[in-house]
């Protein structure tokens, strides 16, 4: 069965959980990006990779794989096109010392950031994230709108999957011409369904005394000591380097 990010988030093993996880990830992400120390990058990458791998196993590799493709291509460009004293030459391609430095720095910084973001993505659902943001005094309407939009997206994705299955079962993608026609019809149906859905949502909210409040999740904070230990290690490393 196709595994969605939501399923991975729900089934992941969370050493650090609750609002603290969101704050911890965002603060450390900021710290790692501005620290400018390769040692900090390496330690952050190692520790968050371990956390992510423990949380979601092979899905960590799956999720980090695609940005790494982009990162590798970017790093190669940096490696060959930064001017400076040549340290290695392959035919007409020259690699400068500065190029190596910048490429290494960029690659490690990006990997560290990616591992932190991946950990957050693999272990935090959207409602948990907005719950944490709301406690940081994010305006009510922003949280309410985001959560409603998220709920509607959930329903529309289910609806789209159903329509897609229906189209496939009746040879809706048999040829290129039919594919285009089916996609157009599917988009049109989905649009109509989304309009209908908004009416139903409005009615459901009315039926339950809606007055502008969207409840937020209250997930218990766990793993505070792990989070503190990682943060202290990173800051200490940065301080001493």
């Amino acid at each position: 069965m196709h595994e969605t990010v939501e399923h991975i988030q729900l089934n992941s093993k969370k050493i650090i959980d609750g609002d603290i996880k969101v704050y911890f990830c965002l603060i450390l992400l900021l710290f790692v990006v501005i620290s400018g120390e390769i040692g900090v990058y390496v330690l952050a990458f190692a520790s968050f990779s371990c956390l992510s791998f423990y949380a979601a196993g092979r899905y960590y590799i799956k999720i980090i794989k695609i940005p790494i493709y982009f990162l590798v291509s970017g790093v190669i460009v940096i490696l060959f096109f930064i001017p400076g004293k040549t340290v290695y030459q392959l035919y007409f391609l020259k690699i400068s010392g500065e190029g190596v430095n910048i490429a290494l720095n960029t690659a490690l910084r990006a990997l560290a950031s990616l591992s932190i973001m991946s950990f957050m993505i693999l272990t935090t659902t959207i409602p948990e994230m907005f719950s944490a943001f709301k406690k940081l005094k994010l305006p009510n309407f922003a949280v309410e709108m985001s959560l409603l939009v998220y709920r509607v997206i959930q329903i529309l994705l289910d609806e789209a999957a159903r329509l897609e299955r229906s189209a496939s079962s009746r040879l809706g993608y048999a040829s290129r011409k039919v594919f285009v026609n089916t996609t157009a019809l599917l988009s049109y149906s989905l649009f109509l369904k989304s309009l209908k859905r908004s009416e139903k949502l409005d009615r459901a909210m009315d039926a339950r005394c809606y007055s502008g409040v969207m409840p937020i999740l209250d997930v218990k904070n766990t793993g505070i000591y792990y989070a503190l230990a990682i943060a202290v290690l990173l800051v200490a490393l940065w301080w001493f380097l």
Partner: peptide, 16 residues
């Protein structure tokens, strides 16, 4: 209405 079970169950009481 809400994305999670708890949020949906308390939707009515919170609004009322």
């Amino acid at each position: 209405i809400a994305p999670t079970v708890w949020q949906d169950v308390v939707f009515g009481p919170k609004n009322a």
